[in-house]
Nucleic acid binder design. Sequence first.
DNA 1: ATAGGTGCAAAGTCTTTGCGCTTAA
DNA 2: TTAAGCGCAAAGACTTTGCACCTAT
Lengths: 131, 131
Amino acid sequence: MKYSKQRQLIENAVIMNRIHPTADDVYVMLKPENANLSLGTVYRNLNLLAENGVIKKLSIPNSSDRFDGDLSEHYHIICNECNKVTDVRLCIKDMLDDEVKKQTGVTGLTYQIVASGVCNDCKNKKVISKK
Amino acid sequence: MKYSKQRQLIENAVIMNRIHPTADDVYVMLKPENANLSLGTVYRNLNLLAENGVIKKLSIPNSSDRFDGDLSEHYHIICNECNKVTDVRLCIKDMLDDEVKKQTGVTGLTYQIVASGVCNDCKNKKVISKK
DNA sequence: ATAGGTGCAAAGTCTTTGCGCTTAA
DNA sequence: TTAAGCGCAAAGACTTTGCACCTAT
């Protein structure tokens, strides 16, 4: 993989910004300082970086794909109201591997867990607006 | 919810066919016997049924949304080669609820776990083709 | 020198939606 | 009767891609 300026910018944007950005988020972040960056390049590089295991691609209900620069074992909570994504640390990969292998024989899987609900901020806003 | 003929057909198609069909799968299943069914209607009803908890909507990496008529606690394996979706039965909701609440305070979540990899059928095909 | 990357814009895929007609209750 | 649903086709959101030009090695 040749390291172009754009690729470095994009990789950095994902790794530095722990907001689980979409391709468009990354584009909007970088465009002001990089006037001729194109959205196609952002998509191409995010996918390439994900294929090469440099970042992870997240598939989230009712949202475009998001990207995560944190490769350690963790999972995600998505708020149905504000669409914010929060991390949860769980060490259950070994357990999942065991159980799946026992049930289906399949091995070598990667797991995505997405918990959907309402985050604390949004829950609080609701309580306040009800007063 | 008024129960139209189309809605019943669509609900039934998802509940009977345990292949986790996409909207288009459902459309293709039903169209031959229901010449004037439209894809828009299939989308509208699948989403409505999912909102009403009659079926579940699944968000799967690199695939259009799929629908599942099985409401019992279970999770999914998606094969990166043939795109088939297989069920895995795990009873970990209570554990996840506990752990997430402890870490983030968030409650009332629903979980989707998607395990990505290569299914047994596809793994076997590879072995054979190498011979 | 040249393999690979970029920008741009067009095209592709999947999904939603507006509207006039139809239908279940 | 009438609120809700349908079929159709157009539009929308998101993503990929072909091509001519550019750039890192």
